[in-house]
């Protein structure tokens, strides 16, 4: 079992990562890059869910958030345009 302090630090890093990836995804002009950033955010989210003792949700988030969502978004981007004017 990891100590409480170590867990706090890990959580802090993961949470900061979630926020920064989300911010980067929304500020990015390249839609494909922001879709991939969202996938990264979803993976970090699922790590955070795992840390918060929710393994089922972590699996679902990794599969659905990082997998299906990204797939749908990338398909949408392919049908439209990659760059935000």
């Amino acid at each position: 079992m990891i100590s409480v302090a170590a867990q706090m630090v890990i959580q802090g890093i993961v949470l900061a990562g979630i926020f920064l990836t989300a911010l980067y995804a929304l500020l990015q002009k390249d839609l494909l890059a922001s879709a991939l950033m969202l996938a990264a955010m979803s993976l970090l989210m699922s790590l955070e869910f795992y840390l918060l003792q929710a393994p089922d949700v972590a699996i679902a988030e990794a599969a659905v958030g990082a997998g299906v969502s990204t797939l749908v978004l990338v398909l949408g981007i392919r049908k439209t345009g990659r760059w935000e004017e």
């Binding site: 929304l26 955070e48 869910f49 918060l52 929710a54 958030g65 978004l73 949408g76 439209t80 004017e85």
Partner: peptide
């Protein structure tokens, strides 16, 4: 950009999920 708006929506949704899980912790 509409796709960006949709991505923002899914970010807000993720926030709601994180809130729910945090409430349960």
């Amino acid at each position: 950009n509409l796709l960006k708006i949709i991505m923002a929506l899914s970010v807000a949704d993720s926030g709601a999920y994180l809130l729910l899980i945090a409430i349960g912790y």
